[in-house]
Design a protein around this nucleic acid. Structure first.
Lengths: 258, 258
DNA sequence: CGCAAGATTGAATAGCCTCAACGTTTGTGG
DNA sequence: CCACAAACGTTGAGGCTATTCAATCTTGCG
Protein backbone atom coordinates (compact mmCIF):
# COMPACT_ATOMS: atom_id res chain seq x y z
CA UNK A 1 0.00 0.00 0.00
CA UNK A 2 2.43 2.61 1.11
CA UNK A 3 5.06 3.58 -1.41
CA UNK A 4 8.38 2.65 0.08
CA UNK A 5 11.12 5.03 -0.87
CA UNK A 6 14.05 7.09 0.26
CA UNK A 7 11.87 9.55 2.02
CA UNK A 8 10.48 7.14 4.54
CA UNK A 9 12.98 8.36 7.08
CA UNK A 10 11.64 11.84 6.50
CA UNK A 11 8.06 10.92 7.18
CA UNK A 12 6.59 10.02 3.83
CA UNK A 13 3.38 8.12 3.98
CA UNK A 14 1.09 6.73 1.33
CA UNK A 15 -0.07 8.52 -1.80
CA UNK A 16 -3.55 9.48 -0.78
CA UNK A 17 -2.45 10.86 2.52
CA UNK A 18 0.34 12.86 0.91
CA UNK A 19 -2.04 14.29 -1.65
CA UNK A 20 -4.45 15.33 1.04
CA UNK A 21 -1.72 16.97 3.06
CA UNK A 22 -0.46 18.82 0.03
CA UNK A 23 -3.84 20.16 -0.94
CA UNK A 24 -4.75 21.24 2.52
CA UNK A 25 -1.50 23.15 2.87
CA UNK A 26 -2.64 25.58 0.22
CA UNK A 27 -4.68 28.45 1.48
CA UNK A 28 -7.48 27.38 -0.80
CA UNK A 29 -8.84 24.52 1.01
CA UNK A 30 -8.20 23.37 4.51
CA UNK A 31 -11.16 21.07 4.05
CA UNK A 32 -9.37 19.22 1.27
CA UNK A 33 -7.53 17.28 3.90
CA UNK A 34 -10.40 14.93 4.05
CA UNK A 35 -11.27 11.30 3.89
CA UNK A 36 -12.70 11.97 0.48
CA UNK A 37 -9.27 12.80 -0.91
CA UNK A 38 -7.43 10.18 1.04
CA UNK A 39 -9.68 7.52 -0.32
CA UNK A 40 -9.43 8.37 -4.00
CA UNK A 41 -8.53 5.20 -5.87
CA UNK A 42 -4.90 5.55 -6.91
CA UNK A 43 -2.84 3.52 -9.32
CA UNK A 44 0.80 3.43 -8.32
CA UNK A 45 3.52 3.20 -10.90
CA UNK A 46 7.25 3.27 -10.40
CA UNK A 47 9.89 4.56 -12.77
CA UNK A 48 13.60 3.99 -12.90
CA UNK A 49 16.01 6.85 -13.23
CA UNK A 50 15.77 8.60 -16.61
CA UNK A 51 12.60 6.82 -17.56
CA UNK A 52 10.00 8.87 -19.35
CA UNK A 53 6.82 9.50 -17.38
CA UNK A 54 5.05 11.34 -20.18
CA UNK A 55 6.41 12.31 -23.52
CA UNK A 56 6.24 15.52 -25.53
CA UNK A 57 3.13 15.26 -27.69
CA UNK A 58 1.25 13.05 -25.28
CA UNK A 59 -2.12 14.00 -23.88
CA UNK A 60 -2.04 12.22 -20.52
CA UNK A 61 -5.51 10.95 -19.76
CA UNK A 62 -5.43 11.25 -16.02
CA UNK A 63 -4.19 13.37 -13.18
CA UNK A 64 -1.09 12.24 -11.33
CA UNK A 65 0.76 12.93 -8.12
CA UNK A 66 4.38 12.32 -7.35
CA UNK A 67 4.53 10.09 -4.31
CA UNK A 68 8.25 9.53 -4.07
CA UNK A 69 11.29 10.76 -5.95
CA UNK A 70 11.59 13.74 -8.26
CA UNK A 71 10.20 14.14 -11.75
CA UNK A 72 11.58 16.79 -14.09
CA UNK A 73 9.86 18.74 -16.81
CA UNK A 74 12.47 18.75 -19.54
CA UNK A 75 13.00 20.20 -22.98
CA UNK A 76 15.81 19.49 -25.40
CA UNK A 77 17.56 22.09 -27.47
CA UNK A 78 19.01 21.59 -30.93
CA UNK A 79 22.52 21.18 -29.58
CA UNK A 80 21.33 18.23 -27.52
CA UNK A 81 21.41 20.18 -24.28
CA UNK A 82 18.64 19.44 -21.88
CA UNK A 83 16.89 22.19 -19.98
CA UNK A 84 14.90 21.24 -16.91
CA UNK A 85 12.02 23.68 -16.64
CA UNK A 86 10.49 22.36 -13.45
CA UNK A 87 10.91 19.92 -10.60
CA UNK A 88 7.95 17.89 -9.38
CA UNK A 89 8.47 16.91 -5.76
CA UNK A 90 6.60 14.38 -3.65
CA UNK A 91 3.07 15.63 -3.21
CA UNK A 92 3.08 17.67 -6.41
CA UNK A 93 0.11 17.15 -8.64
CA UNK A 94 1.03 17.44 -12.26
CA UNK A 95 -0.81 18.67 -15.28
CA UNK A 96 -3.99 19.66 -13.60
CA UNK A 97 -4.55 22.37 -16.25
CA UNK A 98 -4.15 19.81 -19.01
CA UNK A 99 -6.47 17.42 -17.23
CA UNK A 100 -9.02 20.14 -16.78
CA UNK A 101 -8.99 21.18 -20.41
CA UNK A 102 -8.93 17.67 -21.82
CA UNK A 103 -11.36 15.95 -19.48
CA UNK A 104 -14.30 14.64 -21.40
CA UNK A 105 -12.92 15.48 -24.81
CA UNK A 106 -12.40 13.56 -28.00
CA UNK A 107 -8.96 12.44 -29.03
CA UNK A 108 -7.97 14.79 -31.78
CA UNK A 109 -8.81 18.07 -30.13
CA UNK A 110 -6.85 17.40 -26.99
CA UNK A 111 -4.12 19.71 -25.85
CA UNK A 112 -0.76 17.99 -25.82
CA UNK A 113 2.36 18.25 -23.73
CA UNK A 114 4.96 20.67 -25.03
CA UNK A 115 7.69 18.99 -23.02
CA UNK A 116 8.70 15.64 -21.56
CA UNK A 117 8.26 14.47 -18.00
CA UNK A 118 11.26 12.46 -16.96
CA UNK A 119 12.04 10.61 -13.74
CA UNK A 120 15.19 12.26 -12.43
CA UNK A 121 15.45 9.66 -9.70
CA UNK A 122 13.72 6.42 -9.15
CA UNK A 123 10.20 7.46 -8.37
CA UNK A 124 6.66 6.49 -7.63
CA UNK A 125 3.74 8.22 -9.26
CA UNK A 126 0.11 7.79 -8.35
CA UNK A 127 -2.57 8.28 -10.98
CA UNK A 128 -6.09 9.15 -10.03
CA UNK A 129 -8.78 7.44 -11.98
CA UNK A 130 -10.51 10.07 -14.09
CA UNK A 131 -14.00 8.95 -13.27
CA UNK A 132 -13.64 9.04 -9.54
CA UNK A 133 -11.91 12.39 -9.69
CA UNK A 134 -14.65 13.94 -11.78
CA UNK A 135 -17.15 12.69 -9.24
CA UNK A 136 -15.17 14.21 -6.40
CA UNK A 137 -14.82 17.50 -8.27
CA UNK A 138 -18.53 17.74 -8.82
CA UNK A 139 -19.15 17.00 -5.19
CA UNK A 140 -16.45 19.18 -3.70
CA UNK A 141 -15.72 22.39 -5.62
CA UNK A 142 -13.27 23.45 -2.92
CA UNK A 143 -10.98 20.67 -4.05
CA UNK A 144 -11.02 22.01 -7.58
CA UNK A 145 -9.91 25.31 -6.13
CA UNK A 146 -7.08 23.64 -4.28
CA UNK A 147 -5.79 22.14 -7.51
CA UNK A 148 -5.97 25.48 -9.23
CA UNK A 149 -4.08 27.21 -6.46
CA UNK A 150 -1.37 24.57 -6.69
CA UNK A 151 -1.15 25.19 -10.38
CA UNK A 152 -0.85 28.93 -9.86
CA UNK A 153 1.98 28.37 -7.44
CA UNK A 154 3.77 26.20 -9.96
CA UNK A 155 3.55 29.06 -12.41
CA UNK A 156 4.98 31.44 -9.82
CA UNK A 157 7.88 29.10 -9.33
CA UNK A 158 8.50 29.00 -13.06
CA UNK A 159 8.59 32.78 -13.20
CA UNK A 160 11.02 32.91 -10.32
CA UNK A 161 13.27 30.47 -12.16
CA UNK A 162 13.27 32.77 -15.12
CA UNK A 163 14.31 35.63 -12.87
CA UNK A 164 17.11 33.50 -11.46
CA UNK A 165 18.42 32.25 -14.75
CA UNK A 166 18.02 35.60 -16.43
CA UNK A 167 19.24 37.95 -13.74
CA UNK A 168 21.09 36.28 -10.92
CA UNK A 169 24.72 35.16 -10.75
CA UNK A 170 25.40 31.46 -10.49
CA UNK A 171 25.79 31.18 -6.73
CA UNK A 172 22.59 33.05 -6.04
CA UNK A 173 20.72 30.86 -8.50
CA UNK A 174 21.74 27.71 -6.73
CA UNK A 175 21.05 29.23 -3.33
CA UNK A 176 17.64 30.36 -4.48
CA UNK A 177 16.81 26.92 -5.77
CA UNK A 178 17.81 25.35 -2.46
CA UNK A 179 15.61 27.77 -0.54
CA UNK A 180 12.72 27.00 -2.85
CA UNK A 181 13.16 23.26 -2.50
CA UNK A 182 13.44 23.53 1.25
CA UNK A 183 10.17 25.42 1.55
CA UNK A 184 8.37 23.11 -0.82
CA UNK A 185 9.61 20.03 0.98
CA UNK A 186 8.67 21.54 4.29
CA UNK A 187 5.12 22.12 3.05
CA UNK A 188 4.66 18.37 2.70
CA UNK A 189 6.45 17.52 5.90
CA UNK A 190 9.57 16.11 4.29
CA UNK A 191 12.09 18.18 6.19
CA UNK A 192 13.70 17.48 9.51
CA UNK A 193 14.99 20.67 11.03
CA UNK A 194 16.76 22.40 8.19
CA UNK A 195 17.66 19.17 6.42
CA UNK A 196 15.95 17.20 3.74
CA UNK A 197 16.57 14.36 1.37
CA UNK A 198 17.55 15.69 -2.06
CA UNK A 199 18.26 12.89 -4.53
CA UNK A 200 19.18 15.25 -7.39
CA UNK A 201 22.58 15.03 -9.09
CA UNK A 202 24.68 18.10 -9.66
CA UNK A 203 23.88 17.73 -13.33
CA UNK A 204 20.19 18.21 -12.54
CA UNK A 205 20.94 21.41 -10.70
CA UNK A 206 23.02 22.68 -13.58
CA UNK A 207 20.46 21.70 -16.20
CA UNK A 208 17.76 23.52 -14.31
CA UNK A 209 19.68 26.70 -13.62
CA UNK A 210 21.38 27.16 -16.95
CA UNK A 211 24.88 26.48 -15.63
CA UNK A 212 27.59 24.10 -16.67
CA UNK A 213 28.14 21.07 -14.52
CA UNK A 214 31.65 22.13 -13.66
CA UNK A 215 30.63 25.59 -12.59
CA UNK A 216 27.79 24.23 -10.50
CA UNK A 217 30.26 22.06 -8.70
CA UNK A 218 32.52 25.01 -7.94
CA UNK A 219 29.58 27.00 -6.68
CA UNK A 220 28.60 24.19 -4.34
CA UNK A 221 32.13 23.94 -2.99
CA UNK A 222 32.09 27.62 -2.31
CA UNK A 223 28.75 27.43 -0.52
CA UNK A 224 30.07 24.63 1.64
CA UNK A 225 33.20 26.59 2.42
CA UNK A 226 31.07 29.57 3.38
CA UNK A 227 29.07 27.30 5.66
CA UNK A 228 25.81 28.12 3.97
CA UNK A 229 24.97 24.52 3.28
CA UNK A 230 26.03 20.97 3.92
CA UNK A 231 25.37 18.52 1.14
CA UNK A 232 26.37 14.90 1.11
CA UNK A 233 24.83 11.48 0.95
CA UNK A 234 21.83 13.01 -0.82
CA UNK A 235 20.99 15.11 2.21
CA UNK A 236 20.94 18.87 1.99
CA UNK A 237 21.16 20.97 5.12
CA UNK A 238 20.65 24.70 5.09
CA UNK A 239 23.08 25.68 7.81
CA UNK A 240 22.00 29.27 8.16
CA UNK A 241 18.67 29.71 6.49
CA UNK A 242 18.38 33.43 7.15
CA UNK A 243 21.76 34.13 5.69
CA UNK A 244 21.15 31.83 2.75
CA UNK A 245 17.83 33.44 1.94
CA UNK A 246 19.36 36.90 2.16
CA UNK A 247 22.19 35.82 -0.08
CA UNK A 248 19.78 34.28 -2.59
CA UNK A 249 17.42 37.25 -2.65
CA UNK A 250 14.75 34.76 -1.64
CA UNK A 251 11.38 35.47 -0.19
CA UNK A 252 8.94 32.63 0.28
CA UNK A 253 5.85 34.72 -0.43
CA UNK A 254 5.49 33.42 -3.98
CA UNK A 255 5.12 29.86 -2.76
CA UNK A 256 1.85 30.74 -1.09
CA UNK A 257 1.01 31.64 2.48
CA UNK A 258 2.92 29.86 5.18
CA UNK B 1 -15.38 52.71 -29.60
CA UNK B 2 -12.34 51.43 -31.41
CA UNK B 3 -9.04 51.76 -29.63
CA UNK B 4 -6.86 53.95 -31.81
CA UNK B 5 -3.22 53.03 -31.67
CA UNK B 6 -0.04 52.29 -33.55
CA UNK B 7 -1.39 49.07 -34.90
CA UNK B 8 -4.19 50.58 -36.89
CA UNK B 9 -2.09 50.40 -40.00
CA UNK B 10 -1.67 46.70 -39.31
CA UNK B 11 -5.37 46.04 -39.10
CA UNK B 12 -6.25 46.38 -35.46
CA UNK B 13 -9.91 46.78 -34.76
CA UNK B 14 -11.89 47.22 -31.57
CA UNK B 15 -11.43 45.30 -28.35
CA UNK B 16 -14.35 42.92 -28.57
CA UNK B 17 -13.58 41.94 -32.11
CA UNK B 18 -9.92 41.37 -31.30
CA UNK B 19 -10.81 39.22 -28.33
CA UNK B 20 -13.13 37.13 -30.44
CA UNK B 21 -10.54 36.65 -33.13
CA UNK B 22 -7.94 35.66 -30.57
CA UNK B 23 -10.14 33.09 -28.90
CA UNK B 24 -11.30 31.55 -32.12
CA UNK B 25 -7.72 31.17 -33.32
CA UNK B 26 -7.11 28.61 -30.62
CA UNK B 27 -8.07 25.11 -31.51
CA UNK B 28 -10.42 25.03 -28.57
CA UNK B 29 -13.21 26.98 -29.83
CA UNK B 30 -13.97 28.12 -33.32
CA UNK B 31 -17.40 29.03 -32.05
CA UNK B 32 -15.89 31.60 -29.71
CA UNK B 33 -15.72 33.99 -32.59
CA UNK B 34 -19.25 34.95 -31.92
CA UNK B 35 -21.47 37.91 -31.40
CA UNK B 36 -21.64 36.90 -27.77
CA UNK B 37 -17.96 37.59 -27.27
CA UNK B 38 -17.88 40.63 -29.45
CA UNK B 39 -20.63 42.21 -27.48
CA UNK B 40 -19.22 41.72 -24.01
CA UNK B 41 -19.27 45.07 -22.25
CA UNK B 42 -15.66 46.28 -22.09
CA UNK B 43 -14.13 49.11 -20.13
CA UNK B 44 -11.19 50.61 -21.96
CA UNK B 45 -8.28 52.08 -20.07
CA UNK B 46 -5.09 53.54 -21.44
CA UNK B 47 -1.68 53.56 -19.82
CA UNK B 48 1.39 55.62 -20.54
CA UNK B 49 4.77 54.00 -20.93
CA UNK B 50 6.06 52.51 -17.69
CA UNK B 51 2.76 52.87 -15.93
CA UNK B 52 1.73 50.02 -13.69
CA UNK B 53 -1.27 48.04 -14.90
CA UNK B 54 -1.42 45.78 -11.86
CA UNK B 55 0.97 45.63 -8.97
CA UNK B 56 2.59 42.75 -7.15
CA UNK B 57 0.26 41.83 -4.31
CA UNK B 58 -2.88 42.95 -6.11
CA UNK B 59 -5.79 40.63 -6.71
CA UNK B 60 -7.23 42.11 -9.90
CA UNK B 61 -11.00 41.82 -9.77
CA UNK B 62 -11.67 41.37 -13.44
CA UNK B 63 -10.38 39.78 -16.59
CA UNK B 64 -8.54 42.01 -19.05
CA UNK B 65 -7.38 41.97 -22.65
CA UNK B 66 -4.60 43.97 -24.21
CA UNK B 67 -6.11 45.90 -27.07
CA UNK B 68 -3.12 47.93 -28.14
CA UNK B 69 0.51 48.17 -27.10
CA UNK B 70 2.53 45.70 -25.07
CA UNK B 71 2.29 44.93 -21.39
CA UNK B 72 5.13 43.21 -19.57
CA UNK B 73 5.07 40.86 -16.64
CA UNK B 74 8.01 42.08 -14.59
CA UNK B 75 9.88 41.14 -11.46
CA UNK B 76 12.62 43.06 -9.72
CA UNK B 77 15.71 41.54 -8.20
CA UNK B 78 17.60 42.77 -5.19
CA UNK B 79 20.21 44.49 -7.30
CA UNK B 80 17.47 46.59 -8.90
CA UNK B 81 17.58 44.68 -12.15
CA UNK B 82 14.27 44.08 -13.81
CA UNK B 83 13.41 40.76 -15.37
CA UNK B 84 10.55 40.66 -17.85
CA UNK B 85 8.95 37.23 -17.55
CA UNK B 86 6.31 37.65 -20.23
CA UNK B 87 5.01 39.91 -22.97
CA UNK B 88 1.30 40.47 -23.35
CA UNK B 89 0.50 41.39 -26.94
CA UNK B 90 -2.68 42.82 -28.43
CA UNK B 91 -5.38 40.19 -28.07
CA UNK B 92 -3.78 38.52 -25.09
CA UNK B 93 -6.09 37.88 -22.19
CA UNK B 94 -4.33 38.17 -18.93
CA UNK B 95 -4.73 36.48 -15.62
CA UNK B 96 -7.51 34.17 -16.53
CA UNK B 97 -6.28 31.62 -13.98
CA UNK B 98 -6.32 34.26 -11.27
CA UNK B 99 -9.76 35.39 -12.34
CA UNK B 100 -11.01 31.85 -12.31
CA UNK B 101 -9.72 31.09 -8.85
CA UNK B 102 -10.75 34.38 -7.32
CA UNK B 103 -14.16 34.83 -8.93
CA UNK B 104 -16.86 34.94 -6.32
CA UNK B 105 -14.51 34.89 -3.37
CA UNK B 106 -14.10 37.01 -0.28
CA UNK B 107 -11.31 39.53 -0.03
CA UNK B 108 -8.81 37.93 2.29
CA UNK B 109 -8.56 34.51 0.70
CA UNK B 110 -7.84 35.77 -2.79
CA UNK B 111 -4.74 34.71 -4.64
CA UNK B 112 -2.48 37.66 -5.35
CA UNK B 113 -0.12 38.59 -8.14
CA UNK B 114 3.47 37.51 -7.61
CA UNK B 115 4.71 40.07 -10.12
CA UNK B 116 3.89 43.45 -11.59
CA UNK B 117 2.18 44.15 -14.89
CA UNK B 118 3.76 47.16 -16.48
CA UNK B 119 2.93 48.99 -19.69
CA UNK B 120 6.08 48.72 -21.78
CA UNK B 121 4.61 51.05 -24.37
CA UNK B 122 1.61 53.27 -24.34
CA UNK B 123 -1.25 50.83 -24.31
CA UNK B 124 -4.93 50.23 -24.15
CA UNK B 125 -6.41 47.53 -21.99
CA UNK B 126 -10.01 46.38 -22.00
CA UNK B 127 -11.56 44.97 -18.85
CA UNK B 128 -14.52 42.67 -18.99
CA UNK B 129 -17.12 43.22 -16.34
CA UNK B 130 -17.09 40.25 -14.05
CA UNK B 131 -20.82 39.81 -13.95
CA UNK B 132 -21.33 39.67 -17.68
CA UNK B 133 -18.41 37.33 -18.12
CA UNK B 134 -19.69 34.91 -15.52
CA UNK B 135 -23.00 34.90 -17.35
CA UNK B 136 -21.30 34.15 -20.63
CA UNK B 137 -19.19 31.42 -19.06
CA UNK B 138 -22.25 29.70 -17.68
CA UNK B 139 -23.94 29.93 -21.03
CA UNK B 140 -21.02 28.96 -23.22
CA UNK B 141 -18.59 26.46 -21.70
CA UNK B 142 -16.63 26.36 -24.94
CA UNK B 143 -15.50 29.89 -24.24
CA UNK B 144 -14.17 28.84 -20.87
CA UNK B 145 -12.18 26.21 -22.71
CA UNK B 146 -10.80 28.80 -25.08
CA UNK B 147 -9.54 30.86 -22.16
CA UNK B 148 -7.90 27.83 -20.63
CA UNK B 149 -6.17 26.90 -23.83
CA UNK B 150 -4.82 30.43 -24.11
CA UNK B 151 -3.50 30.16 -20.63
CA UNK B 152 -1.82 26.84 -21.38
CA UNK B 153 -0.12 28.38 -24.37
CA UNK B 154 1.15 31.24 -22.23
CA UNK B 155 2.72 28.64 -19.95
CA UNK B 156 4.33 26.94 -22.92
CA UNK B 157 5.81 30.23 -23.96
CA UNK B 158 7.20 30.77 -20.47
CA UNK B 159 8.86 27.36 -20.55
CA UNK B 160 10.36 28.10 -23.92
CA UNK B 161 11.79 31.34 -22.54
CA UNK B 162 13.43 29.40 -19.78
CA UNK B 163 14.99 27.13 -22.36
CA UNK B 164 16.27 30.13 -24.28
CA UNK B 165 17.66 31.98 -21.32
CA UNK B 166 19.09 28.84 -19.76
CA UNK B 167 20.49 27.07 -22.79
CA UNK B 168 20.79 29.21 -25.89
CA UNK B 169 23.48 31.71 -26.81
CA UNK B 170 22.50 35.35 -27.05
CA UNK B 171 21.86 35.58 -30.77
CA UNK B 172 19.64 32.53 -30.79
CA UNK B 173 17.66 33.87 -27.87
CA UNK B 174 16.86 37.06 -29.65
CA UNK B 175 16.09 35.24 -32.88
CA UNK B 176 13.81 32.86 -31.02
CA UNK B 177 11.96 35.71 -29.40
CA UNK B 178 11.42 37.38 -32.76
CA UNK B 179 10.04 34.18 -34.23
CA UNK B 180 7.70 33.81 -31.29
CA UNK B 181 6.47 37.37 -31.52
CA UNK B 182 5.96 37.05 -35.25
CA UNK B 183 3.78 33.98 -34.87
CA UNK B 184 1.80 35.46 -32.03
CA UNK B 185 1.21 38.68 -33.92
CA UNK B 186 0.22 36.75 -36.99
CA UNK B 187 -2.37 34.82 -34.99
CA UNK B 188 -4.25 38.04 -34.34
CA UNK B 189 -3.77 39.41 -37.82
CA UNK B 190 -1.23 42.06 -36.90
CA UNK B 191 1.41 41.13 -39.44
CA UNK B 192 1.77 42.28 -43.02
CA UNK B 193 3.85 39.82 -44.96
CA UNK B 194 6.79 39.12 -42.70
CA UNK B 195 6.67 42.52 -41.02
CA UNK B 196 4.98 43.72 -37.91
CA UNK B 197 4.91 46.69 -35.61
CA UNK B 198 7.13 46.05 -32.59
CA UNK B 199 7.18 48.99 -30.20
CA UNK B 200 9.64 47.41 -27.76
CA UNK B 201 12.95 49.08 -26.89
CA UNK B 202 16.20 47.18 -26.99
CA UNK B 203 16.18 47.37 -23.21
CA UNK B 204 12.95 45.37 -23.15
CA UNK B 205 14.49 42.67 -25.29
CA UNK B 206 17.53 42.52 -23.04
CA UNK B 207 15.48 42.49 -19.84
CA UNK B 208 13.41 39.64 -21.15
CA UNK B 209 16.24 37.48 -22.43
CA UNK B 210 18.71 37.91 -19.61
CA UNK B 211 21.20 39.92 -21.66
CA UNK B 212 22.87 43.25 -21.16
CA UNK B 213 21.61 46.12 -23.23
CA UNK B 214 24.95 46.56 -24.94
CA UNK B 215 25.20 42.96 -25.93
CA UNK B 216 21.65 42.93 -27.22
CA UNK B 217 22.53 45.82 -29.43
CA UNK B 218 25.53 44.03 -30.85
CA UNK B 219 23.47 40.95 -31.49
CA UNK B 220 20.91 42.98 -33.39
CA UNK B 221 23.59 44.59 -35.52
CA UNK B 222 24.90 41.20 -36.36
CA UNK B 223 21.46 39.90 -37.28
CA UNK B 224 20.97 42.89 -39.55
CA UNK B 225 24.34 42.37 -41.14
CA UNK B 226 23.47 38.73 -41.74
CA UNK B 227 20.25 39.86 -43.38
CA UNK B 228 18.13 37.84 -41.01
CA UNK B 229 16.05 40.82 -39.93
CA UNK B 230 15.37 44.44 -40.62
CA UNK B 231 14.43 46.54 -37.63
CA UNK B 232 13.83 50.24 -37.66
CA UNK B 233 11.11 52.73 -36.94
CA UNK B 234 9.51 50.20 -34.63
CA UNK B 235 8.93 47.78 -37.47
CA UNK B 236 10.48 44.36 -37.45
CA UNK B 237 10.81 42.38 -40.66
CA UNK B 238 11.91 38.78 -40.72
CA UNK B 239 13.81 38.75 -43.98
CA UNK B 240 14.24 35.01 -44.26
CA UNK B 241 11.88 33.33 -41.89
CA UNK B 242 12.99 29.78 -42.66
CA UNK B 243 16.60 30.63 -42.08
CA UNK B 244 15.80 32.59 -38.95
CA UNK B 245 13.74 29.79 -37.47
CA UNK B 246 16.45 27.28 -38.21
CA UNK B 247 19.04 29.54 -36.63
CA UNK B 248 16.85 30.06 -33.56
CA UNK B 249 16.00 26.40 -33.11
CA UNK B 250 12.41 27.52 -33.34
CA UNK B 251 9.37 25.42 -33.99
CA UNK B 252 5.95 26.97 -33.72
CA UNK B 253 4.24 23.85 -32.41
CA UNK B 254 4.23 25.05 -28.81
CA UNK B 255 2.15 28.09 -29.74
CA UNK B 256 -0.77 25.86 -30.63
CA UNK B 257 -1.98 24.48 -33.94
CA UNK B 258 -1.59 26.73 -36.94
C1' DC C 1 15.29 73.90 -32.70
C1' DG C 2 16.83 71.75 -28.60
C1' DC C 3 16.54 68.39 -25.05
C1' DA C 4 16.09 63.79 -23.48
C1' DA C 5 15.69 59.04 -24.43
C1' DG C 6 17.38 55.59 -27.11
C1' DA C 7 20.96 53.44 -29.98
C1' DT C 8 25.74 52.58 -31.08
C1' DT C 9 30.62 52.03 -30.43
C1' DG C 10 35.11 50.93 -28.00
C1' DA C 11 38.02 48.96 -24.44
C1' DA C 12 38.91 46.31 -20.55
C1' DT C 13 37.30 42.75 -17.49
C1' DA C 14 34.72 39.17 -15.20
C1' DG C 15 32.10 35.17 -15.10
C1' DC C 16 31.28 31.18 -16.97
C1' DC C 17 32.38 27.40 -20.31
C1' DT C 18 35.01 23.64 -22.36
C1' DC C 19 38.30 20.16 -22.30
C1' DA C 20 40.62 16.89 -19.88
C1' DA C 21 42.25 14.35 -16.10
C1' DC C 22 41.74 12.34 -11.71
C1' DG C 23 39.39 10.95 -7.32
C1' DT C 24 35.29 8.99 -5.01
C1' DT C 25 30.98 6.91 -4.34
C1' DT C 26 27.33 3.78 -5.76
C1' DG C 27 25.46 -0.18 -7.23
C1' DT C 28 25.80 -4.79 -8.91
C1' DG C 29 27.22 -9.49 -9.65
C1' DG C 30 30.09 -12.99 -8.17
C1' DC D 1 30.31 -9.41 1.60
C1' DC D 2 33.80 -8.10 -1.46
C1' DA D 3 35.51 -6.54 -5.94
C1' DC D 4 34.84 -4.28 -9.80
C1' DA D 5 32.86 -1.10 -13.19
C1' DA D 6 30.30 2.78 -14.06
C1' DA D 7 28.39 6.83 -12.56
C1' DC D 8 29.24 10.82 -10.08
C1' DG D 9 32.05 14.38 -8.17
C1' DT D 10 36.30 17.31 -8.07
C1' DT D 11 40.19 19.91 -9.80
C1' DG D 12 43.17 22.62 -13.12
C1' DA D 13 44.08 25.39 -17.19
C1' DG D 14 42.83 28.19 -20.88
C1' DG D 15 39.51 30.58 -23.75
C1' DC D 16 35.33 32.81 -25.11
C1' DT D 17 30.96 35.03 -24.35
C1' DA D 18 28.88 38.50 -22.33
C1' DT D 19 29.44 42.34 -18.92
C1' DT D 20 30.56 46.95 -17.31
C1' DC D 21 31.86 51.57 -17.88
C1' DA D 22 31.99 55.40 -20.56
C1' DA D 23 31.63 58.19 -24.47
C1' DT D 24 29.33 59.50 -28.74
C1' DC D 25 25.79 59.52 -32.11
C1' DT D 26 20.88 59.53 -33.44
C1' DT D 27 16.07 59.92 -33.08
C1' DG D 28 11.62 61.20 -31.20
C1' DC D 29 9.14 64.79 -29.38
C1' DG D 30 7.81 69.26 -27.15
Amino acid sequence: MAARGENEAFGLSDGGHLLARRLSSSRACPAADSEAVRQLPLTLRTYGRDQVVARLGDAPPDLSVVVDGIVGRTKMTRGGKRQIVGFLLPGDVFDWPLFRVNAGLGGSGKVRLDHTLCALTRCTVASVRTGSLLDLMAERPDIVRAFEVQSLIEQSVAREWLVSVGSRPAAERVAHLFCELYHRMKAVGLTRGSSFHLPLRQSHISESQGLSLVHTNRVLQRMRADELIALSARTLTLLQIERLEAFADFSSAYLGPA
